[in-house]
Write a protein that binds this DNA or RNA. Sequence first.
DNA 1: ACATCGTACGTTATCGATAATGCTTGACAC
DNA 2: GTGTCAAGCATTATCGATAACGTACGATGT
Lengths: 219, 219
Amino acid sequence: MSSRLPRITLADQVRDHIVMEIAQGRLAPGAPVRELEIAERLGTSQTPVREAFRKLAAVGLLETRIHVGTRVRDLTEKDLTDAVPVRAALEGIAGRLIAEGGLTADDELLDQMEQMESVARGGNRIALATACTAFHRRIITLAGNDSLSRAWESLGIEVMTLMALAHTEIDAVQAALSHLPVYAALTSGDPVLAERELSAHQFAFVPSSEGPPVADVAG
Amino acid sequence: MSSRLPRITLADQVRDHIVMEIAQGRLAPGAPVRELEIAERLGTSQTPVREAFRKLAAVGLLETRIHVGTRVRDLTEKDLTDAVPVRAALEGIAGRLIAEGGLTADDELLDQMEQMESVARGGNRIALATACTAFHRRIITLAGNDSLSRAWESLGIEVMTLMALAHTEIDAVQAALSHLPVYAALTSGDPVLAERELSAHQFAFVPSSEGPPVADVAG
DNA sequence: ACATCGTACGTTATCGATAATGCTTGACAC
DNA sequence: GTGTCAAGCATTATCGATAACGTACGATGT
């Protein structure tokens, strides 16, 4: 579709395809997905589909029972809220590391922020989710910690963000603008501030939760 | 070899086999590993080996370049130290959640602690690594947060622990005993204490690092 | 009516073979 | 001497087919 010479593996293309199908509701939660059926529909063999299934199962989007079948995992409220404190901790670490490194500016982060605001005003929530994910992934990358990257990727942020923006009433423009103070904190040179801001950012759109209890902080 | 009726998939057996080969030094860091060669050696086809490779690459133990090859990742000092703050954050969260849940005792944790002390005194460092991993995995499980579990698993703790205990001078008995205050904190009912203790536990054997900077805490 | 066993079916898990890709080496032109 | 290109090689990526497994249903006996 995009190019006749695939730069990435078929398995990854299949994976992205399935993610989109789920995010857009064409694959409902709980619906069974069969490797051979998807393979036939996409014109591939079972092998890349199987690989895609494994990756999606690893981030909790699919659920496979050996020799029985695979189905779309029904993401409960708990699944969504569970991810929040973990993300908060991980991105908090990223913020601290970046600020310790003395970051003063980053063009890619700036680009993604502009992109977010632009598409949010245009009402394109899927594009907003894409840009938002790219922004946060960039932060993780800037931290330069492979373990951190792997842990973050394991949360399947793409999907969560897509789902959250596609199926909730969150205000897109407000969500886009909420990244400005994040950028400011990252470039402030203050590790404690950066960690706190990055962490708090995760709780911004989860009204029911207000973050973990912390010991009293002076100031 | 072990059983003629495999209860788990071949891919997982292959994965465990490769982990052991790496941990025991039979597969050196940087050494190339070819899917078909491993398949032949283990008497399977390429498919399960490939799946095992992907899982191991996901935890950073192998490194695959598309259409080129896979090699054992050379775990640098940085890789080991990178994992520490991430583990600290994740297990800290686990500690907080468990204490909030009001855990008073857990037989499995107690069993693993006994096991650790026993095998440590016997000098079996591999068994110590196994028990230690089981202990910490149990903690993550007790937290009851799927995102947390996935993030933790993504760090490949098994391998890291195995490598650390197999190739360093860490005192086994001391390492085993260091889990007692962890258990005490978990069952104390104090979320802040549990989070702090679980987190600090990760820095115990990393002399060069003393943990992240924190805001001044009253008391 | 109920329990037990066997059998048929759907799906994944595995296989063996082939296609596709990136790297390397060497020839060749300049 | 150096750069460019082409052919060959090593390895993965993908394919199509088969085997293995778990489930559900129905037959059978009590």
